[in-house]
Design a protein around this nucleic acid. Structure first.
Length: 565
RNA sequence: GCGCCAGUAGCUCAGCUGGAUAGAGCAACGGCCUUCUAAGCCGUAGGUCACAGGUUCGAGUCCUGUCUGGCGCGCCA
């Protein structure tokens, strides 16, 4: 949706050699200057002029249509005053017409994508720190599906490893065990392993039996990790996060494709057995330039494989599933590790997925620590947030049945967490503050939801359905209306940028800005009691278009636009 | 020590890939509910964009160095 088309076309027709990209349209910094501004920097360069000259040249030579009421050159800028209604009409028309698809550029048509995210260790309940991976990954999935990608979501289950070995040894009766029970058992088992070396050794033996394929041990590992996985995915499902496929690490223990990798490494002289009988890759032979992180261990002295060795097989497996785009979401602590894997795969003639990294979530008084109990569990936070939201819903939606009120409170809680995490650029640490995340005021998900609830409230009171046919004489004159329309027109570009940069944070920022502009409009421009029927009709359509755009933006973020709250 | 990421208002964050006088929210102060939901709105105050150089018509944004914080660097996953 390019609302500037009527301004652009006559300029392009007058000056040869200019393209759309040379014309930098945007809102004027102040509405007194104009409704829309054009920066002439790029165009000037192409035309061999200085920007202010270029502005003057456009002013002198171009004849604009009747939509343009006046043009003024201010240094390198041109400021246009427009017939706002005429410009706004097609914007609203497109939004109401495209409805749930408004904002999508459909860039993923006929494109298959495999994305792996979350993949947390089974022995922990998701806390908000780890959940950044899940929320970010899930939001990418939603973004790409919105763009018509055919997305397959994978979760890599670390179902083997020392921690599961200890657990399997410690736990007798899995049948009657709960997720919380397993978590406690893991803590106890670790303590026991620390106190009792013999027990620790037996843990490794369990692991060895698992690798050898002992059916009884395998079943125990499987049942334990299943229980854990269910506990974890239940919490994540509460946030609307779902997966298409769970890939068990144990499946990749003896993958024949690893032989070809090792053979390729041998051929390049990049693999050797060290003095402790470990099988080690020397990455300096295959492109790693520094000393740090030069060595990568594939197998222990006893022949059991390391996590990274199995991950090589898993990565190869993912890449061979025929997706056009492969993505994985990893914490920034995995940066070097992923680079090491990539080098090995490249040396073996294999490709690697594109990785999206995110920085850690910190607490106000430092980093999270499971050991010190300095964690915010996702489930705990959601419970507390839902309870606080519930108090408000109780007074504001007293007429609704209790079940419905509870559902609303839960959705507010989800919006609070998801938004708090997603609005921050992924390469920045998030400082998670319990209190401000529970306030629901200001820059929050609930604030955005609230603006939607207000729109819904107006639409409910408006008698009759909203007409999608937008009048050509669209009577919008107020600044608040204009600012809102311009913001709505931006949405497809915001989505396109998010796709290109694999960054969803700007969508959160966009929803926030739109909500703020709507609220200003809400206060400045009465809808249901506007002066004329035509104005009521127009503002209702603007409300409907805003709600549609926000619904689409929020759905990418995994947040529900609420009818009432 | 080496590598990657970051440093913007007291606090938490934006800043459209180099463009007009750097923007929000929280906290503070002052206003606004018999008028579409006050989870709200309007206003005031708050800045040497970590620091020092450089690149050019123009730098919060690009380059170099320094400082501070996060993460990582051979049998954890």
């Amino acid at each position: 949706m390019n609302p500037f088309e009527p301004l652009q076309a006559p300029i392009l027709a007058t000056f040869d050699g200019l393209t759309e990209e040379d014309l930098l349209f945007g809102p004027s910094p102040k509405l007194e200057l104009g409704d829309v501004a054009l920066g002439t920097f790029k165009a000037a360069k192409k035309l061999g002029m200085k920007p202010p000259e270029c502005a003057q040249a456009i002013l002198a030579q171009v004849t604009f249509g009747s939509q343009v009421l006046s043009v003024q050159a201010t240094g390198p800028y041109l400021n246009f005053k427009l017939d706002r209604g005429v410009i706004a009409q097609p914007v609203l028309s497109v939004i109401l017409d495209e409805a749930g698809e408004y904002g999508s550029n459909h860039s993923g048509r006929d494109t298959r994508m495999l994305i792996e995210h979350t993949s947390i260790n089974p022995n922990a309940s998701p806390h908000v720190g780890r959940a950044r991976n899940a929320m970010y990954g899930d939001t990418l999935v939603r973004l790409f599906r919105f763009e018509d990608y055919d997305v397959d979501v994978h979760y890599y289950v670390n179902d083997i490893g020392r921690q599961i070995g200890l657990l399997a040894l410690f736990v007798d009766d899995i049948e009657s065990m709960t997720f919380d029970g397993v978590l406690q058992a893991y803590v106890d088992a670790n303590q026991k392993a620390e106190d009792d070396p013999e027990f620790a050794k037996q843990g490794y033996e369990m692991l060895a039996k698992m690798e050898e394929g002992d059916p009884e041990v395998a079943k125990k590992f499987h049942d334990l990790t299943d229980l854990c996985l269910k506990g974890q995915t239940d919490v994540l499902a509460r946030l609307g996060i779902h997966y298409d496929q769970f890939d068990r690490e144990s499946k990749y223990l003896k993958d024949p494709r690893l032989d070809t990798v090792v053979a390729a490494l041998e051929e390049k002289g990049a693999v050797f057995t060290d003095e402790d009988e470990r099988l080690v890759v020397d990455l300096s032979k295959i492109g790693h330039e520094r000393d740090e992180g030069r060595f990568f261990v594939l197998k222990r002295a006893n022949g059991s494989s390391m996590y990274g060795f199995r991950d090589l097989a898993y990565t190869i497996d993912k890449m061979e599933q025929g997706a056009d785009v492969n993505l994985q979401v990893l914490g920034e602590d995995h940066k070097l590790y992923a680079e090491q894997l990539n080098l090995i795969l490249k040396a073996a003639g294999k490709t690697s997925p594109e990785t999206i990294y995110y920085a850690y979530i910190l607490l106000k008084d430092g980093k999270m620590s499971t050991r010190q109990g300095k964690v915010v569990l996702l489930a705990d936070f959601l419970d507390e947030a839902a309870s606080r939201a519930g108090e408000k819903v109780e007074t504001q939606c007293a007429d609704l049945p209790e079940a419905e009120r509870k559902a609303i409170a839960e959705k507010v809680a989800i919006a609070a967490v998801r938004f708090a995490i997603l609005k921050v650029n992924p390469n920045k640490n998030v400082i998670f503050d319990w209190e401000s995340s529970l306030s629901f005021n200001g820059d929050t998900g609930p604030y955005v939801q609230y603006s939607c609830a207000r729109i819904n409230s107006i639409l409910r009171k408006y008698d009759g359905p909203v007409d999608c046919a937008v009048d050509s004489e669209f009577p919008l004159t107020q600044d608040a209306e204009w600012a809102l329309v311009m913001k709505l027109a931006e949405f497809p570009a915001v989505v396109a940028a998010a796709v290109e940069n694999r960054n969803v944070a700007p969508i959160g920022q966009y929803a926030l800005e739109t909500a703020r502009l709507f609220t200003t409009f809400y206060h400045d421009c009465p809808v249901l009691i506007a002066e004329t029927p035509a104005l009521i009709r127009a503002r209702i359509q603007l409300c409907r278009a805003t709600l549609q755009t926000q619904t689409n933006a929020l759905s990418i973020l995994g947040i529900d636009a609420l009818e009432r709250m």
